[in-house]
């Protein structure tokens, strides 16, 4: 028999290293040939930080994002951007890029005002050019301006570091004022179908609402939520590296099951954007929080479906069959 159930989970995640660890990202921006080069060591592991910082720089500097290049991470050519972990890159490197872009924009205004013999309010930037509002034909591209600046023996470039402080919790009580830079929240409600004969659980639908401040790139955020949730489903239902007496019994993908396309549920996602956090444009991090709610939501839904609560993960078909058998007595 197939039984359906619904389950909910609400989670929080304090992001950044926090706890008083030094946590920062350094970024620089310069002009190069036909492009704008952002130097960062931020690792894009697939989540899309390079896309996010391209968007931020293009937005602030009002240039075509196709003109933006990002240097390859290289310990000898890029400065420390901190790790891609702790859900920190959009917040930390995003803020650093925003600051660097704002500083560069300030310099563009400064040097252009010398060229145009005018003051900042009379200048307009658009599509990588700057001009006086009353003389739009007579414009300078950023690259032309950079050339003029370099002829003066100066440089049109910027560097910024984003380095917010946190507090180390007291060793005896864990208490402190400012442990993490910010918290992301998320609620998920899932619907599952439990096959009481085979013990198999199918996650049918996942409804998500995430409090993320602002989505710099909503489709990427959806991608994080979908990918994270399916990892959480793996944690809830199948993934288990069995280590017996120190020896892994299933060191391959035949023995260690991960979700396939067959396990992918339907997603409905709502992004709550109050633009009220300290990340760029009010954003908070989403990478880790996106995977956290799935396991409890699925466990709660299984309880709703068959009346059995599981305290140990993963909730495999064998465990479900056994529990249902035990329940009869």
């Amino acid at each position: 028999m197939k039984k359906r159930g619904q389950g909910m989970a609400t989670i929080m995640f304090g992001f950044g290293y926090g706890e008083g660890f030094p946590d920062h990202s350094i970024v620089s921006i310069e002009f190069e040939d036909e492009s704008l080069l952002i130097r960062t060591a931020a690792a894009d592991v697939g989540q899309g930080v390079l896309t996010v910082i391209t968007q931020i720089a293009a937005e602030i500097l009002k240039i075509d994002p196709d003109l933006i290049k990002i240097s390859q991470g290289d310990t000898h050519l890029t400065k420390n951007s901190g790790s891609t972990s702790a859900t920190r890159q959009t917040f930390f490197t995003g803020n650093a890029v925003k600051q660097a872009a704002e500083e560069l924009l300030g310099k563009i205004y400064h040097y252009a005002s010398l060229e145009f013999r005018s003051n900042h309010p009379e200048l307009i930037v658009k599509d990588g050019h700057i001009f006086r509002h009353d003389d739009p034909e007579n414009k300078l591209s950023y690259w032309q301006l950079a050339e003029i600046v370099s002829q003066k023996g100066e440089e049109l470039k910027s560097e910024a570091s984003f380095f917010p402080a946190t507090d180390a919790p007291d060793a005896a009580t864990g208490q402190a004022d400012n442990v993490y830079v910010a918290y992301t929240f998320m609620t998920q409600k899932v619907e599952v179908e439990v096959d009481t004969v085979t013990g198999e659980v199918e996650v049918i639908e996942v409804n998500t609402a995430m409090d993320l401040g602002k989505a710099i790139n909503p489709r990427n955020v959806e991608g994080q939520i979908e990918g994270g949730t399916v990892q959480g489903i793996g944690m809830a239902l199948m993934e288990d590296q069995v280590i017996q007496n120190g020896i892994t019994l299933n060191p391959d993908l035949t023995g260690y099951l991960v979700p396939t396309a067959m396990d992918s549920p339907h997603f409905k996602t709502s992004l709550i954007e109050n633009e009220d956090a300290d990340g760029p444009f009010g954003a908070k991090g989403v990478g880790e929080p996106s995977m956290i709610a799935a396991a409890p939501a699925v466990a709660n839904a299984i309880h709703d479906a068959i009346g059995v609560r599981f305290y140990e993960l993963p909730i495999t078909p064998d465990k479900i069959k056994k529990a249902l058998k035990d329940k009869i007595f």
Partner: peptide
Amino acid sequence: LSGNICRCTGYTK
């Protein structure tokens, strides 16, 4: 697509 594992996307997209 069930023979192809993707660890990142959750397959939706």
